[in-house]
């Protein structure tokens, strides 16, 4: 304590001393005061609250976990569908090409003709060559000038391979062992008499 604090304490009024002869206010305790009974409701509320929080927590956690399973499930479905979509897309590659269209059209007897004619509505004049297509194509999509498309060739190869496989499968099915008697299809063979 500093000197200043000591001086301040010295300036305080003297504490009032208890009057001599007055009865003492403090007495020894004979028995402890009876404690008020704790209210059960408070305890129940507190415990219930804690339990409710705990249950809510577990519930939320479960819900999130459940969602995680659903999500995983949907994600794998999505992946599967994407794969199928891209497999189908692969099948289409090349099918949309002008080469295939031209080949198919020429198989149907269609030609790429020369100039087109136009009908002017205002005075019903036909502009242009005013003739129809002469049935001759200006190009031959199957000839030596055919524009190459590896995708179509792969498809054609695959189709040919599939045909071969099918044909050979049919061959084996039709093949007959010459050592076996011919199969009976129309009842028992019998001599034809007239």
């Amino acid at each position: 304590m500093s000197r200043q604090a000591a001086t301040a304490a010295a300036l305080l009024p003297e504490p009032i001393a208890p009057a001599p002869g007055a009865p003492r206010r403090l007495k020894p305790v004979t028995a402890p005061a009876r404690r008020a009974k704790p209210k059960l409701a408070y305890a129940l509320i507190a415990l219930g609250g804690a339990a409710a929080i705990g249950i809510a927590q577990i519930g939320l956690s479960l819900a999130i976990t459940q969602d995680s399973f659903v999500l995983a499930d949907l994600t794998s479905q999505q992946r599967e569908l994407d794969l199928q979509a891209s497999a189908l897309q692969d099948d289409l590659a090349g099918t949309s090409s002008p080469q295939l269209l031209a080949t198919k059209a020429s198989e149907l007897g269609m030609v790429v003709a020369g100039s087109a004619s136009y009908l002017r509505l205002s005075d019903s004049t036909v502009l242009g060559p005013n003739t129809g297509a002469d049935g001759k194509s200006t190009i031959d999509p199957n000839g030596s000038g055919a524009v190459y498309n590896a995708l179509l060739n792969q498809k054609a190869d695959a189709a040919a391979a599939a045909n071969d496989a099918e044909a050979s499968a049919n061959d084996t099915a039709d093949a007959v062992d010459p050592n076996l008697p011919p199969p009976i299809t129309d009842g028992l063979p019998s001599p034809t008499t007239r």
Partner: peptide, 17 residues
């Protein structure tokens, strides 16, 4: 224009040959 491009590729290929 890819359709025009196809025709011209086909045509120049035939003509050049």
């Amino acid at each position: 224009n890819s359709d025009l491009q196809w025709y011209l590729t086909q045509m120049i290929s035939e003509e050049a040959q």
